[in-house]
Amino acid sequence: MSQRFLLSRRLLGTTALAAVFAGRFAHAQSREIQIAAASDKPGNIDMQLDVNGETHKLSLDPRTTLLDALRDHMGLTGTKKGCDHGQCGACTVLINGVRMNSCLSLAAARDGDKITTIEGLAEGEKLHPMQAAFVKADAFQCGFCTPGQICSAVGMVAEMQRGAPSAASMDFDAKPVGSVEEIRERMSGNICRCSAYPNIVAAIVAASEGAPT
């Protein structure tokens, strides 16, 4: 019993770390995919997606969501599919620097856009400060929501810096921007089924304190 528990903890931990470190393997993988996808079935549409600084020329069924294009056609499986309906945030990516749910976007509609996924945040071996903060604060348990949480948090910091309001800062008992309550509100689009919220918020607070305002 205790052995099984230990084993599963280890496996879960590995998934989480894979999400954080996924950047290391992404580039080699995506180049191959680019060639494999250059078939055009009748009815497919051509599109060009700039993902993590690489251009992908794809010919896909119009039904393909950005999420499925990333995972199934570019081999970028760091972005997760939780609900596929905009309800969980696991699929969050940055589109032209803005966080969005990739499950509710058609890939074709993103033609020419600049997309950053969890694989694109690190610079080589150097983790993005938000990734490093998640590792340091132990901000995950199973890790499934983690890529979406991190991309969302990166987008959130930019929104705060731009002065975008949140329900918590606009409300009757307004909470100061950047407070724990306010960050929880801004991050409400990312559900964590393991409920790692306290450490997720701690990681974001730590990372956003270091960020320039």
């Binding site: 966080r99 969005m100 509710l104 959130m156 929104e159 329900a167 606009m170 409300d171 801004r186 689009g189």
Partner: peptide, 22 residues
């Protein structure tokens, strides 16, 4: 935010930041 604050409040109380961005 200045002239129609109820509209800002209504919007930021809906959906999630990701959805509102889209």
């Amino acid at each position: 935010m200045e002239r129609y604050p109820m509209l800002t409040r209504a919007i930021v109380n809906g959906a999630s930041a990701q959805l509102r961005n889209q």
